[in-house]
Design a protein around this nucleic acid. Structure first.
Length: 502
RNA sequence: CGGGGCGUAGCGCAGUCUGGCUAGCGCGCCUGGUUUGGGACCAGGAGGUCGAGAGUUCGAAUCUCUCCGCCCCGACCA
């Protein structure tokens, strides 16, 4: 038997390891259409967990869900100059609406559309057009709407979950009477994203505004949460944009204020996508497959009955069901425990490894010997796969929430320690260059996050581009030590995070 | 879109340079048996238009051309 369930290991070939984990965990696979993916039940179950948690957070802050169309008239996209520039080249365009059977048996597009339709790459334009109709008075504000949808961006280099032509996401779009209120909304959502990443995904993130070059097309300010993957690269895990009045002006989103004067709204937009699943994989998984933090895991505890004879089977299954019922009565992080008994008729070893590869946080084995001793055998996914401890059956259910919480906490701490070990503060251009010169991203101590004073200036990109490094964001919760840009010498208020990114 | 690598059974591969029996191997799958606290063993079996198309040839997985897809690196991005 190989030493690990996943081959190659992270160290041997990180990108290939990622793909193998996705496959071994049965999360998704390639579709016949280039760049698209089939999200399989286990992958989709994780997405549903994410949806449920975020949706509650959005509703709790006054947002409502709605749905806007997939197709956007090309003319809508033309309204905001920078937005056009940013998205035009990656749009999928529908030009026909009918297929006809040709003599050779092929179906050919027939009815040409008057105006081509863009498959939404994001919905600012179509939603803005509706807001322009809906909003008339200050009494109509704020408008706080979210939609769960799919979007299409015709990417050149797709990668399962991380960058696909079609992906699922939520996009929030809000309109406000004042700039301050819109900025507050932008930051409120950023906080929701950061809390979600850290508390549920056990994924430490850095949050902060992006430099102008990294801004969303048409935004005044873009804020992001940035996570570090196990190869030291950064991954943007969520964004929240303060759009100022740019879209409002372009689309005529106006209202009469309390004095009766006409004013443009201040708008925001924000989103997270199925990319978070990729982030989850690359944050916690190991050379045996996926590792899921308990709070996001669709199944937190799997009970594995072990038996040979029909009598043993009956006995063990009864005990399993009883344990399941007791576990269901327990709560962890304000939710009922998610437990499954795996009674499938297959070899025990195969079954165990399947759950290892799928990242189930706790495996509980119950066999005749356990029953006789009044214990269960418990394996934790954050420990080596063969490590097992016997715990008294009686107290186990009551103990389970604490065990899950401990795993959750441990995963967060491990990720935070990893990030800390690969984050360095740098105070000269030479040190920055030295840090990224070698392409040793997988090597310990290389790559990672660099904290440095840099100005929002094209000269910075000139130095970073050859290193394949970008300024990820300017952390908001770090220290506010002012300094001078290590490249241009301009004074800057605090350090930024620089890294190679996905 | 540029550079590199690769497409042979569900997965991983050999065979391709040097064209020639019925296209192989490991894992997986199905059946039967022996097993059973661990990704087992024995026996039997199913499964492939060798990425697609065209060409050269008596004969193509193998040679030529075109196309498609995947992966890595670059430009672009959530």
């Amino acid at each position: 038997m190989p030493e690990h369930a996943i081959s190659p290991t992270r160290r041997e070939d990180y990108p290939e390891w990622y793909q193998q984990v996705v496959r071994a965990a049965d999360l998704a696979e390639q579709s016949p259409v280039r760049g698209c993916m089939v999200i399989k039940p286990h992958g989709y179950a994780i997405w549903e967990r994410m949806q449920g948690i975020l949706d509650r957070a959005f509703k709790a802050t006054g947002h409502q869900n709605a749905y806007f169309p997939l197709f956007i008239p090309v003319s809508y996209l033309e309204q905001e100059a920078k937005h056009v520039e940013g998205f035009a080249k990656e749009c999928a365009v529908v030009t026909h609406h009918r297929l006809e059977l040709a003599p050779d048996g092929r179906l050919v597009p027939a009815g040409k559309l008057e105006e081509p339709l863009v498959v939404r790459p994001t919905s600012e334009t179509i939603i803005g057009a509706m807001y322009a109709k809906w909003i008339q008075s200050w009494r109509d504000l704020p408008v706080l709407i979210n939609q769960w949808a799919n979007v299409v961006r015709w990417e050149m280099r797709p990668r399962l979950f991380l960058r696909t032509a079609e992906f699922l996401w939520q996009e929030g779009h809000t309109a406000h009477a004042t700039a301050a209120e819109a900025v507050e909304e932008t930051l409120r959502i950023l906080d929701i994203y950061a809390a979600f990443a850290e508390e549920h995904l056990a994924m430490p993130v850095v949050k902060g505004p992006k430099p102008s070059a990294e801004r969303f097309p048409g935004a005044v300010d873009t804020y992001s949460i940035e996570a570090m993957m196990q190869d030291g690269r950064a991954l943007q895990a969520g964004t929240s944009h303060f759009l100022g009045q740019n879209f409002a002006r372009a689309q005529g989103i106006k209202f009469a204020d309390t004095t009766g004067a006409e004013a443009f709204c201040w708008t925001t937009s924000w989103g997270v996508s199925t990319r978070l699943i990729g982030a989850l994989v690359m944050t916690h998984s190991d050379d045996d497959g996926l590792v899921l933090p308990p709070r996001i895991a669709p199944t937190q505890i799997v009970i594995l009955p072990i038996h040979r004879t029909p009598e043993e089977r009956a006995q063990v299954l009864a005990a399993s069901r009883q344990l399941e019922a007791r576990l269901h009565a327990e709560r962890s992080a304000d939710e009922q425990l998610r437990v499954r008994i795996d009674t499938r008729d297959m070899r025990g070893g195969d079954k165990v490894w399947q759950h290892v590869k799928q990242g189930v946080p706790l495996r509980v084995e119950i066999g005749p010997r356990d029953l006789a001793a009044g214990v269960v055998s418990v394996c934790r996914r954050d420990r080596p796969p063969k490590e097992r401890v016997s715990l008294p059956l009686d107290g186990f259910a009551a103990q389970a929430p604490a065990l899950l919480a401990e795993i959750q906490q441990g995963l967060f701490e491990r990720a935070a320690a990893f990030r800390a070990a690969r984050t360095v503060t740098v105070d000269s251009q030479a040190d920055l260059v030295a840090r990224f010169r070698e392409d040793g991203a997988a090597e310990a101590g290389q790559g990672g996050f660099v904290r440095a004073h840099v100005a929002d200036d094209p000269a910075v990109a000139a130095v970073c581009d050859p290193l394949k490094v970008t300024v990820r964001c300017i952390p908001m919760d770090g220290d506010d030590e002012p300094g001078r840009c290590i490249i241009t010498g301009q004074p800057v208020a605090r350090r930024s995070i620089l890294a190679r990114a996905y």
